[in-house]
């Protein structure tokens, strides 16, 4: 599957959140790095088709995901930074089955497929659990299972490990390695990118570097440490 971004620009609240992003992503593991406010999350939403770019085009496999939401359901899934913003249902089974029903499966089929998904992750016993009572890491895993159950060809993740402890993060990363879908992951931490094939670096809504991790990340880390020494918290964006 190929994510094709051509001259993508997005304006939010009168400010350019993204400008002139062009990239053709065909690698299995692609990371988007950058500071807070660099436009990473906006780009994730554009790739998933949740917002349409104001200029340029964003397509997956040649289809505009913001226009054709039906095709988007089959092709792309997104995992948000905060699982509490993503989980819609009171119980685990309902949460996983929802996307499947949305894809047109009958309720019984959707539940059976949802059970199979839970089983694949060794979480069949979660079925009746209340989503509200899950831990943060468990919630994130539930979001992952709910998205993977829909068999998307591209999975977009927006900082999926923020706020998780190290063991939980390592466990989730292990689950991620097994995913056959293409992964586009947003992060500000280069430490989360083991095994990635390509890194895009956003700064101020623009793409300032694009290449394999061993070429992009050393520069990125050096620049982050350099900026860490200054005090740019003083600047106000608007």
């Amino acid at each position: 599957m190929t994510v094709d971004l051509q001259n993508v620009g997005v304006t939010l609240g009168g400010r350019a959140a993204l400008a002139g992003i062009t990239a053709r992503l065909a690698e299995p593991r692609v990371a988007i790095v950058g500071r807070n406010g660099s436009g990473k999350t906006t780009l994730a939403r554009v790739v998933a088709g949740l917002i349409a770019p104001d200029t340029g085009q964003a397509r997956i496999g040649g289809i505009d995901m913001a226009r054709d939401r039906r095709a988007a359901l089959e092709n792309v899934g997104i995992i948000f930074q905060n699982p509490d913003h993503q989980i819609i249902f009171p119980t685990v089974l309902e949460e996983v089955a929802f996307g499947l029903a949305q894809q047109g499966k009958r309720p019984r089929e959707a539940e059976a497929a949802a059970r199979a998904m839970l089983d694949r992750f060794g979480k069949a016993h979660w079925e009746r659990a209340a989503t509200h009572s899950l831990s943060q890491g468990q919630k994130q895993l539930l979001c992952l299972m709910a998205v993977l159950a829909m068999r998307p060809r591209v999975v977009v993740m927006d900082e999926p490990f923020s706020g998780l402890d190290i063991p939980t993060r390592l466990q989730l990363m292990r689950y991620l390695q097994k995913i056959t879908a293409q992964v586009v992951m947003i992060t500000h931490d280069p430490g989360h990118l083991r095994g990635f094939d390509r890194v895009l670096w956003l700064e101020g809504g623009r793409l300032i570097a694009d290449g394999p991790p061993d070429r992009v990340l050393p520069d990125f880390e050096a620049r982050m440490l350099d900026w860490g020494g200054s005090d740019d918290l003083a600047h106000l964006a608007c």
Binding site: R69, R70, F80, Q86, I88, F98, Q102, M150
Partner: peptide, 24 residues
């Protein structure tokens, strides 16, 4: 604010009116 986020999550998985062509 939470309602906005959940609306987006719903949209990411096809919204409510998925019997309307293209889900909008």
């Amino acid at each position: 604010d939470d309602a906005d986020h959940v609306a987006e999550a719903l949209r990411a998985r096809g919204g409510i009116l998925n019997d309307i062509p293209d889900g909008r």
